[in-house]
Design a binder for these strands. Structure first.
Lengths: 252, 252
DNA sequence: ACCTGAACACCGTTCAAGT
DNA sequence: ACCTGAACACCGTTCAAGT
Protein backbone atom coordinates (compact mmCIF):
# COMPACT_ATOMS: atom_id res chain seq x y z
CA UNK A 1 0.00 0.00 0.00
CA UNK A 2 1.33 3.41 -0.91
CA UNK A 3 2.17 5.73 2.01
CA UNK A 4 -0.45 8.38 2.58
CA UNK A 5 -0.15 11.35 0.26
CA UNK A 6 2.27 14.11 1.25
CA UNK A 7 2.12 17.72 0.14
CA UNK A 8 5.83 18.02 -0.54
CA UNK A 9 6.75 16.63 -3.92
CA UNK A 10 8.92 13.58 -3.92
CA UNK A 11 12.29 13.77 -5.50
CA UNK A 12 12.52 11.77 -8.69
CA UNK A 13 16.28 11.46 -9.20
CA UNK A 14 18.57 9.83 -6.65
CA UNK A 15 20.17 11.71 -3.83
CA UNK A 16 23.90 12.33 -3.99
CA UNK A 17 26.56 14.14 -2.08
CA UNK A 18 26.72 16.75 -4.84
CA UNK A 19 22.99 17.43 -4.77
CA UNK A 20 23.07 17.80 -1.00
CA UNK A 21 25.98 20.24 -1.10
CA UNK A 22 24.28 22.22 -3.84
CA UNK A 23 21.13 22.50 -1.73
CA UNK A 24 23.20 23.50 1.29
CA UNK A 25 24.81 26.36 -0.63
CA UNK A 26 21.38 27.56 -1.75
CA UNK A 27 20.07 27.57 1.81
CA UNK A 28 23.16 29.40 3.06
CA UNK A 29 22.85 32.01 0.34
CA UNK A 30 19.18 32.59 1.08
CA UNK A 31 19.22 32.71 4.85
CA UNK A 32 22.81 32.77 6.05
CA UNK A 33 24.48 30.33 8.35
CA UNK A 34 21.36 29.97 10.48
CA UNK A 35 19.41 28.94 7.40
CA UNK A 36 21.30 25.69 6.93
CA UNK A 37 19.23 23.22 8.89
CA UNK A 38 18.65 19.52 8.50
CA UNK A 39 14.92 20.24 8.58
CA UNK A 40 15.17 22.78 5.76
CA UNK A 41 17.50 20.48 3.87
CA UNK A 42 15.22 17.44 4.13
CA UNK A 43 12.28 19.52 2.99
CA UNK A 44 14.13 20.95 -0.01
CA UNK A 45 15.44 17.53 -0.96
CA UNK A 46 12.20 15.73 -0.06
CA UNK A 47 13.80 13.10 2.18
CA UNK A 48 14.46 12.31 5.78
CA UNK A 49 17.54 13.20 7.81
CA UNK A 50 18.83 9.63 7.67
CA UNK A 51 19.19 9.87 3.90
CA UNK A 52 21.44 12.90 4.25
CA UNK A 53 23.54 11.23 6.91
CA UNK A 54 24.09 8.37 4.52
CA UNK A 55 25.96 10.70 2.15
CA UNK A 56 27.49 13.18 4.59
CA UNK A 57 29.03 12.77 8.05
CA UNK A 58 27.26 15.68 9.69
CA UNK A 59 26.70 19.40 9.64
CA UNK A 60 30.37 20.25 9.97
CA UNK A 61 31.35 18.26 6.92
CA UNK A 62 28.48 19.79 5.02
CA UNK A 63 29.62 23.30 5.84
CA UNK A 64 33.20 22.46 4.90
CA UNK A 65 32.11 20.92 1.62
CA UNK A 66 29.90 23.90 0.76
CA UNK A 67 32.79 26.26 1.52
CA UNK A 68 35.20 24.25 -0.55
CA UNK A 69 32.85 24.05 -3.52
CA UNK A 70 32.27 27.79 -3.65
CA UNK A 71 35.93 28.71 -3.21
CA UNK A 72 37.10 26.16 -5.76
CA UNK A 73 34.95 27.69 -8.49
CA UNK A 74 35.88 31.22 -7.41
CA UNK A 75 39.59 30.48 -7.68
CA UNK A 76 39.19 28.63 -10.97
CA UNK A 77 37.66 31.60 -12.77
CA UNK A 78 39.70 34.43 -14.35
CA UNK A 79 38.60 36.46 -11.31
CA UNK A 80 39.18 39.89 -12.84
CA UNK A 81 35.42 40.33 -13.04
CA UNK A 82 33.81 43.00 -10.89
CA UNK A 83 35.94 46.02 -11.70
CA UNK A 84 33.45 48.87 -12.18
CA UNK A 85 36.05 51.35 -13.37
CA UNK A 86 36.50 53.89 -16.17
CA UNK A 87 36.10 52.39 -19.65
CA UNK A 88 39.83 52.68 -20.26
CA UNK A 89 40.61 51.05 -16.93
CA UNK A 90 38.12 48.29 -17.61
CA UNK A 91 39.72 47.52 -20.95
CA UNK A 92 43.14 47.51 -19.37
CA UNK A 93 42.11 45.10 -16.61
CA UNK A 94 40.30 42.81 -19.03
CA UNK A 95 43.46 42.70 -21.07
CA UNK A 96 45.67 41.99 -18.08
CA UNK A 97 43.40 39.12 -17.17
CA UNK A 98 44.35 37.34 -20.38
CA UNK A 99 47.99 38.26 -20.59
CA UNK A 100 50.33 36.17 -18.40
CA UNK A 101 50.23 38.61 -15.54
CA UNK A 102 52.87 39.77 -13.11
CA UNK A 103 52.93 38.19 -9.65
CA UNK A 104 51.47 41.38 -8.18
CA UNK A 105 48.59 41.36 -10.63
CA UNK A 106 48.00 37.70 -9.95
CA UNK A 107 47.78 38.36 -6.22
CA UNK A 108 45.38 41.21 -6.87
CA UNK A 109 43.27 38.98 -9.12
CA UNK A 110 43.07 36.18 -6.57
CA UNK A 111 42.24 38.70 -3.85
CA UNK A 112 39.45 40.14 -5.98
CA UNK A 113 38.16 36.66 -6.74
CA UNK A 114 37.87 35.89 -3.04
CA UNK A 115 36.36 39.34 -2.43
CA UNK A 116 33.67 38.69 -5.01
CA UNK A 117 32.96 35.17 -3.72
CA UNK A 118 32.55 36.43 -0.16
CA UNK A 119 30.42 39.29 -1.40
CA UNK A 120 28.13 36.83 -3.19
CA UNK A 121 28.12 34.35 -0.28
CA UNK A 122 28.51 36.33 2.94
CA UNK A 123 28.46 33.18 5.09
CA UNK A 124 31.81 32.28 3.49
CA UNK A 125 33.78 34.78 5.55
CA UNK A 126 33.28 33.16 8.93
CA UNK A 127 33.67 29.69 7.44
CA UNK A 128 36.98 30.53 5.82
CA UNK A 129 38.51 32.13 8.88
CA UNK A 130 37.56 29.21 11.12
CA UNK A 131 38.66 26.62 8.58
CA UNK A 132 41.95 28.40 7.95
CA UNK A 133 42.60 28.24 11.68
CA UNK A 134 41.21 24.81 12.57
CA UNK A 135 41.48 22.65 9.48
CA UNK A 136 44.73 23.67 7.86
CA UNK A 137 44.91 20.47 5.86
CA UNK A 138 41.30 20.48 4.71
CA UNK A 139 41.16 21.21 1.03
CA UNK A 140 40.02 24.82 1.12
CA UNK A 141 43.01 26.02 3.14
CA UNK A 142 45.70 24.62 0.81
CA UNK A 143 43.73 25.96 -2.14
CA UNK A 144 43.85 29.53 -0.83
CA UNK A 145 47.40 29.38 0.50
CA UNK A 146 48.65 27.93 -2.76
CA UNK A 147 47.02 30.55 -4.96
CA UNK A 148 48.42 33.41 -2.87
CA UNK A 149 51.71 31.78 -1.98
CA UNK A 150 52.76 30.84 -5.48
CA UNK A 151 52.84 34.44 -6.75
CA UNK A 152 54.45 35.51 -3.47
CA UNK A 153 57.30 33.17 -4.27
CA UNK A 154 57.37 34.41 -7.87
CA UNK A 155 57.76 37.91 -6.49
CA UNK A 156 61.26 36.96 -5.40
CA UNK A 157 60.60 36.75 -1.67
CA UNK A 158 63.30 34.56 -0.10
CA UNK A 159 62.14 31.28 1.39
CA UNK A 160 62.34 32.49 4.97
CA UNK A 161 59.74 35.15 4.21
CA UNK A 162 57.11 33.03 2.47
CA UNK A 163 55.17 32.16 5.56
CA UNK A 164 54.84 35.68 6.91
CA UNK A 165 54.10 37.27 3.54
CA UNK A 166 51.51 34.71 2.48
CA UNK A 167 49.60 34.75 5.75
CA UNK A 168 49.71 38.54 6.01
CA UNK A 169 48.00 38.71 2.61
CA UNK A 170 45.49 35.96 3.38
CA UNK A 171 44.49 37.36 6.76
CA UNK A 172 44.03 40.80 5.31
CA UNK A 173 42.02 39.52 2.36
CA UNK A 174 39.65 37.37 4.39
CA UNK A 175 39.17 39.98 7.11
CA UNK A 176 38.55 42.90 4.78
CA UNK A 177 36.32 40.94 2.40
CA UNK A 178 34.26 39.65 5.32
CA UNK A 179 33.78 43.13 6.65
CA UNK A 180 32.66 44.35 3.25
CA UNK A 181 30.19 41.51 2.87
CA UNK A 182 28.68 42.37 6.24
CA UNK A 183 28.22 45.97 5.10
CA UNK A 184 26.40 44.82 2.00
CA UNK A 185 24.31 42.33 3.92
CA UNK A 186 21.94 44.95 5.18
CA UNK A 187 20.20 42.53 7.51
CA UNK A 188 21.94 44.17 10.44
CA UNK A 189 19.96 47.37 10.54
CA UNK A 190 16.31 47.94 9.80
CA UNK A 191 15.22 46.45 6.46
CA UNK A 192 15.09 48.91 3.61
CA UNK A 193 18.32 50.55 4.73
CA UNK A 194 20.87 50.49 1.95
CA UNK A 195 24.63 50.40 2.17
CA UNK A 196 25.24 54.16 2.11
CA UNK A 197 22.65 54.78 4.79
CA UNK A 198 24.19 52.00 6.82
CA UNK A 199 27.72 53.40 6.55
CA UNK A 200 26.33 56.81 7.38
CA UNK A 201 24.70 55.44 10.52
CA UNK A 202 27.96 53.79 11.57
CA UNK A 203 29.84 57.03 10.97
CA UNK A 204 27.31 58.91 13.07
CA UNK A 205 27.66 56.40 15.89
CA UNK A 206 31.42 56.83 15.78
CA UNK A 207 31.07 60.58 15.89
CA UNK A 208 28.91 60.36 18.99
CA UNK A 209 31.57 58.52 20.99
CA UNK A 210 33.15 60.55 23.77
CA UNK A 211 35.78 62.64 21.94
CA UNK A 212 38.22 62.49 24.83
CA UNK A 213 38.17 58.69 24.87
CA UNK A 214 37.89 58.23 21.10
CA UNK A 215 39.60 61.10 19.30
CA UNK A 216 40.66 58.92 16.40
CA UNK A 217 37.23 57.39 15.79
CA UNK A 218 35.75 60.83 15.14
CA UNK A 219 38.37 61.42 12.50
CA UNK A 220 37.90 57.98 11.02
CA UNK A 221 34.16 58.56 10.70
CA UNK A 222 34.78 61.26 8.11
CA UNK A 223 36.50 58.72 5.88
CA UNK A 224 33.80 56.14 6.19
CA UNK A 225 31.07 58.15 4.48
CA UNK A 226 30.82 57.39 0.82
CA UNK A 227 34.03 55.43 0.58
CA UNK A 228 34.53 52.97 -2.25
CA UNK A 229 34.61 49.47 -0.81
CA UNK A 230 36.45 47.74 -3.59
CA UNK A 231 39.02 50.49 -4.00
CA UNK A 232 39.56 50.45 -0.23
CA UNK A 233 40.02 46.69 -0.34
CA UNK A 234 42.58 46.85 -3.14
CA UNK A 235 44.44 49.67 -1.40
CA UNK A 236 44.89 47.35 1.56
CA UNK A 237 46.19 44.57 -0.68
CA UNK A 238 48.66 47.02 -2.19
CA UNK A 239 49.73 48.16 1.26
CA UNK A 240 50.61 44.62 2.26
CA UNK A 241 52.36 44.11 -1.07
CA UNK A 242 54.38 47.27 -0.40
CA UNK A 243 55.34 45.82 2.96
CA UNK A 244 56.57 42.64 1.33
CA UNK A 245 58.67 44.65 -1.11
CA UNK A 246 60.05 46.83 1.68
CA UNK A 247 61.01 43.88 3.89
CA UNK A 248 62.56 41.99 0.96
CA UNK A 249 64.34 44.62 -1.11
CA UNK A 250 65.38 42.28 -3.91
CA UNK A 251 61.76 41.62 -4.69
CA UNK A 252 60.49 42.63 -8.11
CA UNK B 1 5.50 25.58 52.54
CA UNK B 2 9.12 25.58 51.44
CA UNK B 3 9.77 24.22 47.94
CA UNK B 4 11.14 20.70 48.01
CA UNK B 5 14.88 20.50 48.65
CA UNK B 6 17.20 20.84 45.65
CA UNK B 7 20.68 19.42 45.37
CA UNK B 8 22.15 22.50 43.73
CA UNK B 9 23.16 25.11 46.25
CA UNK B 10 21.26 28.32 46.21
CA UNK B 11 23.05 31.49 45.49
CA UNK B 12 23.21 33.81 48.50
CA UNK B 13 24.09 37.17 46.92
CA UNK B 14 21.94 38.87 44.33
CA UNK B 15 22.30 38.29 40.61
CA UNK B 16 23.70 41.08 38.50
CA UNK B 17 24.73 41.71 34.93
CA UNK B 18 28.37 41.62 35.98
CA UNK B 19 28.06 38.27 37.74
CA UNK B 20 26.33 36.81 34.68
CA UNK B 21 28.99 38.06 32.29
CA UNK B 22 31.72 36.75 34.57
CA UNK B 23 30.11 33.31 34.61
CA UNK B 24 29.73 33.45 30.82
CA UNK B 25 33.45 34.12 30.37
CA UNK B 26 34.27 31.18 32.65
CA UNK B 27 32.07 28.85 30.65
CA UNK B 28 33.53 30.05 27.36
CA UNK B 29 37.07 29.57 28.64
CA UNK B 30 36.32 26.07 29.87
CA UNK B 31 34.39 24.68 26.95
CA UNK B 32 34.58 27.13 24.06
CA UNK B 33 31.71 28.78 22.29
CA UNK B 34 29.58 25.64 22.52
CA UNK B 35 29.98 25.67 26.28
CA UNK B 36 28.01 28.87 26.78
CA UNK B 37 24.49 27.63 27.31
CA UNK B 38 21.58 29.00 29.25
CA UNK B 39 21.31 25.63 30.98
CA UNK B 40 24.94 25.65 32.06
CA UNK B 41 24.62 29.30 33.04
CA UNK B 42 21.51 28.76 35.20
CA UNK B 43 23.18 25.83 36.93
CA UNK B 44 26.36 27.74 37.67
CA UNK B 45 24.41 30.73 38.92
CA UNK B 46 21.73 28.62 40.65
CA UNK B 47 18.77 30.33 39.01
CA UNK B 48 16.30 29.93 36.20
CA UNK B 49 16.59 31.27 32.67
CA UNK B 50 14.06 34.02 33.39
CA UNK B 51 16.38 35.56 35.95
CA UNK B 52 19.14 35.85 33.37
CA UNK B 53 16.80 37.37 30.80
CA UNK B 54 15.90 40.00 33.35
CA UNK B 55 19.50 41.29 33.28
CA UNK B 56 20.51 40.50 29.71
CA UNK B 57 18.64 40.70 26.41
CA UNK B 58 19.71 37.31 25.07
CA UNK B 59 22.63 35.17 24.06
CA UNK B 60 23.96 37.62 21.50
CA UNK B 61 24.21 40.43 24.00
CA UNK B 62 25.85 38.09 26.48
CA UNK B 63 28.50 37.09 23.95
CA UNK B 64 29.11 40.73 23.03
CA UNK B 65 29.41 41.73 26.67
CA UNK B 66 31.80 38.89 27.45
CA UNK B 67 33.94 39.86 24.44
CA UNK B 68 33.95 43.50 25.44
CA UNK B 69 34.90 42.75 29.05
CA UNK B 70 37.88 40.60 28.10
CA UNK B 71 39.18 42.98 25.44
CA UNK B 72 38.75 46.03 27.67
CA UNK B 73 40.99 44.57 30.37
CA UNK B 74 43.48 43.29 27.76
CA UNK B 75 43.85 46.75 26.23
CA UNK B 76 44.00 48.47 29.62
CA UNK B 77 47.06 46.49 30.76
CA UNK B 78 50.64 47.41 29.86
CA UNK B 79 50.33 44.55 27.39
CA UNK B 80 54.05 43.83 27.11
CA UNK B 81 53.49 40.75 29.28
CA UNK B 82 54.01 37.38 27.67
CA UNK B 83 57.43 37.88 26.18
CA UNK B 84 59.30 34.66 27.08
CA UNK B 85 62.66 35.98 25.95
CA UNK B 86 66.26 36.20 27.16
CA UNK B 87 66.67 37.94 30.55
CA UNK B 88 68.21 40.94 28.85
CA UNK B 89 65.40 41.08 26.30
CA UNK B 90 62.81 40.76 29.06
CA UNK B 91 64.31 43.68 30.96
CA UNK B 92 64.39 45.75 27.79
CA UNK B 93 60.76 45.08 26.98
CA UNK B 94 59.67 45.74 30.56
CA UNK B 95 61.46 49.06 30.33
CA UNK B 96 59.94 50.01 27.02
CA UNK B 97 56.51 49.34 28.53
CA UNK B 98 57.03 52.15 30.99
CA UNK B 99 58.79 54.68 28.80
CA UNK B 100 56.50 56.72 26.52
CA UNK B 101 56.97 54.47 23.53
CA UNK B 102 57.21 55.21 19.84
CA UNK B 103 54.07 54.74 17.73
CA UNK B 104 55.56 51.54 16.26
CA UNK B 105 56.23 50.09 19.71
CA UNK B 106 52.77 51.07 20.81
CA UNK B 107 51.23 49.25 17.85
CA UNK B 108 53.37 46.21 18.63
CA UNK B 109 52.32 46.33 22.28
CA UNK B 110 48.62 46.55 21.44
CA UNK B 111 49.02 43.73 18.93
CA UNK B 112 50.72 41.56 21.55
CA UNK B 113 48.03 42.39 24.09
CA UNK B 114 45.35 41.17 21.69
CA UNK B 115 47.46 38.15 20.79
CA UNK B 116 47.74 37.19 24.46
CA UNK B 117 44.06 37.79 25.12
CA UNK B 118 43.05 35.59 22.18
CA UNK B 119 45.56 32.97 23.25
CA UNK B 120 44.04 32.89 26.74
CA UNK B 121 40.45 33.00 25.43
CA UNK B 122 40.39 31.23 22.05
CA UNK B 123 36.66 31.88 21.58
CA UNK B 124 37.54 35.58 21.30
CA UNK B 125 38.89 35.28 17.77
CA UNK B 126 35.64 34.40 16.05
CA UNK B 127 33.70 36.85 18.23
CA UNK B 128 36.00 39.73 17.37
CA UNK B 129 35.97 39.13 13.63
CA UNK B 130 32.17 38.91 13.50
CA UNK B 131 31.70 41.90 15.78
CA UNK B 132 34.20 43.96 13.82
CA UNK B 133 32.19 43.23 10.70
CA UNK B 134 28.63 43.37 12.01
CA UNK B 135 28.62 45.70 14.98
CA UNK B 136 31.03 48.46 14.07
CA UNK B 137 29.54 50.79 16.66
CA UNK B 138 29.38 48.27 19.48
CA UNK B 139 31.94 49.16 22.10
CA UNK B 140 34.56 46.54 21.33
CA UNK B 141 35.10 47.69 17.74
CA UNK B 142 35.82 51.33 18.57
CA UNK B 143 38.09 50.20 21.39
CA UNK B 144 40.28 48.18 19.05
CA UNK B 145 40.23 50.64 16.17
CA UNK B 146 41.10 53.50 18.49
CA UNK B 147 44.05 51.76 20.11
CA UNK B 148 45.53 50.83 16.74
CA UNK B 149 44.44 53.93 14.86
CA UNK B 150 45.81 56.48 17.28
CA UNK B 151 49.43 55.35 16.92
CA UNK B 152 48.88 54.98 13.16
CA UNK B 153 48.04 58.67 13.07
CA UNK B 154 51.01 59.44 15.33
CA UNK B 155 53.20 57.66 12.79
CA UNK B 156 52.59 60.53 10.43
CA UNK B 157 50.27 58.75 8.02
CA UNK B 158 48.24 61.38 6.15
CA UNK B 159 44.51 61.41 6.84
CA UNK B 160 43.61 59.73 3.56
CA UNK B 161 45.60 56.67 4.59
CA UNK B 162 44.25 56.16 8.10
CA UNK B 163 41.45 53.85 7.13
CA UNK B 164 43.50 51.46 5.00
CA UNK B 165 46.44 51.34 7.39
CA UNK B 166 44.37 50.81 10.52
CA UNK B 167 42.23 48.07 9.06
CA UNK B 168 45.19 46.30 7.45
CA UNK B 169 46.78 46.07 10.88
CA UNK B 170 43.59 45.01 12.65
CA UNK B 171 42.67 42.36 10.12
CA UNK B 172 46.15 40.91 10.23
CA UNK B 173 46.27 40.93 14.03
CA UNK B 174 42.90 39.26 14.54
CA UNK B 175 43.44 36.70 11.80
CA UNK B 176 46.93 35.68 12.84
CA UNK B 177 46.15 35.64 16.57
CA UNK B 178 43.07 33.52 15.95
CA UNK B 179 45.07 31.05 13.92
CA UNK B 180 47.66 30.79 16.67
CA UNK B 181 45.01 30.24 19.34
CA UNK B 182 43.55 27.40 17.29
CA UNK B 183 46.99 25.80 17.08
CA UNK B 184 47.35 25.94 20.85
CA UNK B 185 43.81 24.73 21.39
CA UNK B 186 44.77 21.14 20.77
CA UNK B 187 41.17 19.99 20.87
CA UNK B 188 41.27 19.56 17.11
CA UNK B 189 43.37 16.46 16.94
CA UNK B 190 43.46 13.50 19.31
CA UNK B 191 43.82 14.51 22.96
CA UNK B 192 47.35 14.29 24.30
CA UNK B 193 48.75 15.77 21.10
CA UNK B 194 50.76 18.88 21.83
CA UNK B 195 51.40 21.87 19.68
CA UNK B 196 54.60 20.67 18.02
CA UNK B 197 53.09 17.31 17.18
CA UNK B 198 50.07 19.11 15.79
CA UNK B 199 52.12 21.42 13.57
CA UNK B 200 54.13 18.44 12.45
CA UNK B 201 50.96 16.61 11.47
CA UNK B 202 49.76 19.63 9.50
CA UNK B 203 53.12 19.90 7.75
CA UNK B 204 52.96 16.21 6.85
CA UNK B 205 49.48 16.63 5.43
CA UNK B 206 50.70 19.53 3.32
CA UNK B 207 53.60 17.48 2.06
CA UNK B 208 51.28 14.72 0.96
CA UNK B 209 49.29 17.00 -1.33
CA UNK B 210 49.76 16.36 -5.03
CA UNK B 211 53.01 18.21 -5.83
CA UNK B 212 51.87 19.21 -9.29
CA UNK B 213 48.76 20.91 -7.90
CA UNK B 214 50.35 22.24 -4.72
CA UNK B 215 54.03 22.96 -5.33
CA UNK B 216 54.08 25.86 -2.91
CA UNK B 217 52.43 24.00 -0.05
CA UNK B 218 55.22 21.44 0.02
CA UNK B 219 57.74 24.24 0.40
CA UNK B 220 55.62 26.00 3.02
CA UNK B 221 55.45 22.81 5.09
CA UNK B 222 59.20 23.00 5.74
CA UNK B 223 58.70 26.38 7.41
CA UNK B 224 55.85 25.24 9.57
CA UNK B 225 57.82 22.72 11.62
CA UNK B 226 59.16 24.19 14.81
CA UNK B 227 58.37 27.78 13.96
CA UNK B 228 58.04 30.32 16.76
CA UNK B 229 54.44 31.50 16.89
CA UNK B 230 54.95 34.78 18.64
CA UNK B 231 57.96 35.76 16.54
CA UNK B 232 55.99 34.84 13.41
CA UNK B 233 53.11 36.99 14.59
CA UNK B 234 55.31 40.00 15.27
CA UNK B 235 57.07 39.58 11.92
CA UNK B 236 53.67 39.96 10.27
CA UNK B 237 52.91 43.10 12.26
CA UNK B 238 56.28 44.52 11.18
CA UNK B 239 55.56 43.61 7.57
CA UNK B 240 52.33 45.60 7.60
CA UNK B 241 54.12 48.46 9.38
CA UNK B 242 56.76 48.40 6.64
CA UNK B 243 53.96 48.62 4.09
CA UNK B 244 52.54 51.69 5.80
CA UNK B 245 55.95 53.34 5.78
CA UNK B 246 56.52 52.46 2.15
CA UNK B 247 53.14 53.79 1.01
CA UNK B 248 53.52 56.99 3.07
CA UNK B 249 57.17 57.97 2.73
CA UNK B 250 56.98 60.91 5.12
CA UNK B 251 56.10 58.55 7.94
CA UNK B 252 58.51 58.29 10.87
C1' DA C 1 23.13 -0.03 -0.92
C1' DC C 2 20.13 3.42 -0.02
C1' DC C 3 16.35 5.54 2.26
C1' DT C 4 12.40 6.40 5.92
C1' DG C 5 10.81 8.85 9.88
C1' DA C 6 10.01 8.49 14.78
C1' DA C 7 12.57 9.36 18.77
C1' DC C 8 16.35 11.36 21.74
C1' DA C 9 18.77 14.80 24.01
C1' DC C 10 19.57 18.95 23.51
C1' DC C 11 18.94 24.37 22.36
C1' DG C 12 17.28 29.74 23.19
C1' DT C 13 13.38 32.16 24.62
C1' DT C 14 8.79 33.29 26.73
C1' DC C 15 5.62 34.09 30.27
C1' DA C 16 2.26 33.42 33.94
C1' DA C 17 3.05 33.24 38.52
C1' DG C 18 5.34 34.19 42.73
C1' DT C 19 7.91 37.40 46.30
C1' DA D 1 11.89 45.13 41.00
C1' DC D 2 13.53 40.77 40.74
C1' DC D 3 13.15 35.91 40.30
C1' DT D 4 10.97 30.99 39.37
C1' DG D 5 10.45 27.12 36.33
C1' DA D 6 7.33 24.88 33.19
C1' DA D 7 6.43 25.13 28.45
C1' DC D 8 7.26 26.17 23.41
C1' DA D 9 9.37 25.74 19.16
C1' DC D 10 13.17 24.65 17.59
C1' DC D 11 18.04 22.06 16.88
C1' DG D 12 21.58 17.91 15.18
C1' DT D 13 21.89 13.11 15.37
C1' DT D 14 20.64 8.14 15.88
C1' DC D 15 18.69 3.92 14.61
C1' DA D 16 15.41 0.17 13.90
C1' DA D 17 12.94 -0.74 10.08
C1' DG D 18 11.93 -0.87 5.32
C1' DT D 19 13.13 -1.59 0.07
Amino acid sequence: MAPRARRAERRTDALSRERIIEAAVELLDQAGEGGLTFRALTERLATGPGAIYWHVAGKGELLAAATDAVVATALAEPAATAQPAEPAEAAKSAESARVPSSPRDEIRAVALGLYDAIDAHPWLAAQLTTQLARSPSESVTPRILESIGRPVRALGVPEGGWFTATFALVHYILGAAGQNAANEGGAFLAPGVDRDQYLDAVASAWEQLDPSDYPFMRALARQLRGHDDQAEFLAGVDLVLAGITAVHPLTR
